[in-house]
Lab assay of single mutants.
Amino acid sequence: MGSVRTNRYSIVSSEEDGMKLATMAVANGFGNGKSKVHTRQQCRSRFVKKDGHCNVQFINVGEKGQRYLADIFTTCVDIRWRWMLVIFCLAFVLSWLFFGCVFWLIALLHGDLDTDYKDDDDKSKVSKACVSEVNSFTAAFLFSIETQTTIGYGFRCVTDECPIAVFMVVFQSIVGCIIDAFIIGAVMAKMAKPKKRNETLVFSHNAVIAMRDGKLCLMWRVGNLRKSHLVEAHVRAQLLKSRITSEGEYIPLDQIDINVGFDSGIDRIFLVSPITIVHEIDEDSPLYDLSKQDIDNADFEIVVILEGMVEATAMTTQCRSSYLANEILWGHRYEPVLFEEKHYYKVDYSRFHKTYEVPNTPLCSARDLAEKKYILSNANSFCYENEVALTSKEEEEDSENGVPESTSTDSPPGIDLHNQASVPLEPRPLRRESEIGSRR
């Protein structure tokens, strides 16, 4: 089982795998120059863009038009607004034209077009017409509009002379109601789609790998820009990579689940303020055997998904993003964004995407760390350097704002901070800030 798991979770494809794949392509008759073999020097295209759209195009789909027309309502909801407006206008105009032609044909076959009612006051002739005051196609078209929109100006009306005319008036009224219901329903469904809710759900630009509770963890940050909550919010993550099976089958995008606390339930989050999602790199993680150097040379993509129900409509929305291997910062942490004021908490989104480097973060893999092949620094050293990194950030910001350097908390000259780390230190809580992250 261990060997199978290692093969499945191998992220960085070796040169031997690339040569094996190329040999397979030639042997199977696919070596026509169009096949692409992804190596370390040639990274694959992003499968999920940063804005959440999937970078996929469908080609050679059989009976595409028929399949889309069979699900016309979903098609109308998914198309762009400009095409929705075109369909909206065409549906009414074509129905008016169709029934206008029908009423014109009825008048033509009944002989109503030969009668001039402007110079004739004989009401008996008017009563013999199928539709009064309809003696041309324009008049028939206007009567069709008046019937379907129930305008009723009063000059044109159907008589009991022709039952077919009466039937067409009733039929057009029913068709008009159906068109109204369909168009209004599609427009309302399109307006109520929770897709735009994703514009106020954000992911951090970069993911980070750092120590948390004595273990290497992959972390990324999510935030909600609205005050309205995302009900039943939960997160998922998958690692996408290519691999070759033991039988020699090439899988271009193998999807591997990344555990973010599904078993323990901590994948469900209360997204009021930005939260750091934590994936513990343990023996079940696809990143277990990867060191910093392996991450730098790897070719994979981590897709992160945030799902929840919109509070206003109770409709489920899904926000997506992805991180390539070069977008994962090893040995970094996110800057705090949640600050405790006197009577409330304040979230500073200008710090949302910012990170700071944490010294002495192990550069080895989580496996080597678990097997004690890498000796961690003293816990006080880690905490102290973590505090120094934050303090230096604040000093830089104070210097930019014009604060005198004498007010900063610099260490005395001639003292090495790293050498001082081995000395037991008193706890130094942050002056006014605390970061709330997901705790395992």
Rank of each mutant, 00 (worst) to 15 (best):
G62Q: 13
I183K: 03
L271D: 05
R320Q: 04
E385S: 04
L97Y: 01
F155G: 14
R351S: 15
R243C: 05
G331M: 02
S3F: 02
D213A: 14
L85N: 03
Y323S: 01
S264V: 11
G265T: 14
F30A: 15
D289P: 08
T6D: 14
G223I: 08
V235Y: 00
N224K: 08
K354A: 09
I328C: 03
R226D: 11
R226K: 13
H353I: 00
P286V: 02
Q238L: 07
Y345T: 08
P252E: 15
D257S: 10
Y153S: 13
V12M: 02
A298Q: 11
M84S: 03
I281T: 01
S381Q: 11
I145H: 05
A91W: 15
Y153N: 07
M315W: 08
S127F: 12
N378S: 12
A207S: 07
Y9D: 15
H53A: 13
A27H: 12
S173G: 06
Q57E: 14
F73A: 14
R197C: 14
E371H: 04
L69P: 10
F88G: 13
I328T: 03
A22Q: 12
K50E: 07
S228E: 06
Q172W: 00
D416N: 06
V126E: 04
E146R: 04
H38N: 12
I244K: 15
M24G: 15
D160Y: 02
N55T: 12
M315D: 11
H38L: 11
M84A: 07
N135P: 02
D368E: 05
G33I: 07
T159Q: 06
C364H: 06
N224T: 12
D78I: 06
S392P: 13
K215F: 03
Y344L: 12
I266K: 12
C217H: 08
L376K: 06
S35Y: 04
A70Q: 11
V175L: 14
K342I: 08
A325W: 03
A186R: 14
C162V: 01
K196P: 11
V423A: 15
V134G: 01
G414F: 07
P413L: 10
V337D: 03
L94Q: 02
F167G: 08
E133F: 03
D296R: 04
P336K: 15
V86R: 03
E15Y: 03
I59T: 15
S399V: 11
A192C: 04
M191L: 11
Q57F: 06
L142R: 01
E371G: 05
I295S: 00
S45N: 14
C177D: 08
A22C: 04
S285C: 00
I328G: 00
A312Q: 11
H234F: 11
A139N: 15
S3H: 05
E396N: 10
S422N: 13
D257Y: 07
A27M: 05
L239H: 03
F98G: 04
E395Y: 06
E357Q: 08
E247T: 07
L390E: 15
L201C: 12
I59P: 11
R40H: 13
L216P: 09
S228C: 12
I302K: 00
T6P: 13
P413F: 07
C43T: 14
T75R: 12
L69Y: 06
T6Q: 13
F182T: 04
R197I: 11
Y9H: 11
M309A: 12
K373D: 15
A298K: 06
M309I: 04
T409K: 09
S13Y: 07
W96I: 14
H229Q: 10
P404M: 09
V222Y: 02
C217L: 08
R351I: 15
R197E: 15
A237S: 09
A207F: 02
V102R: 00
A107L: 05
N206D: 10
V86C: 14
F262Q: 04
Y68C: 14
E247Q: 12
S3M: 05
R197W: 07
I244A: 14
S14Q: 09
S228Y: 14
P413A: 12
A421V: 11
A233P: 12
K215R: 05
S399K: 12
L287W: 00
F92L: 14
E394L: 06
A210M: 08
H234D: 06
D122M: 02
S408R: 10
G100E: 01
D160K: 02
P194M: 04
C101I: 03
N401F: 07
E397D: 09
C54W: 06
A421G: 10
R243A: 09
V358R: 01
V310P: 11
I415M: 13
L108H: 15
L287C: 01
F262P: 06
L430P: 07
I266T: 08
M168R: 00
K193W: 10
T200G: 09
D114C: 02
D296A: 06
F92T: 11
V169W: 08
D112E: 02
A379E: 08
Y250D: 15
K292F: 11
D120R: 00
V222S: 01
D112C: 01
S392M: 07
A312V: 03
D114R: 07
A186G: 15
V260N: 00
V48M: 08
E394N: 14
S124M: 15
N60W: 06
G261R: 10
P252N: 15
K354Q: 14
F182A: 02
N378P: 13
D267Y: 03
K241I: 07
D416Q: 10
K20W: 02
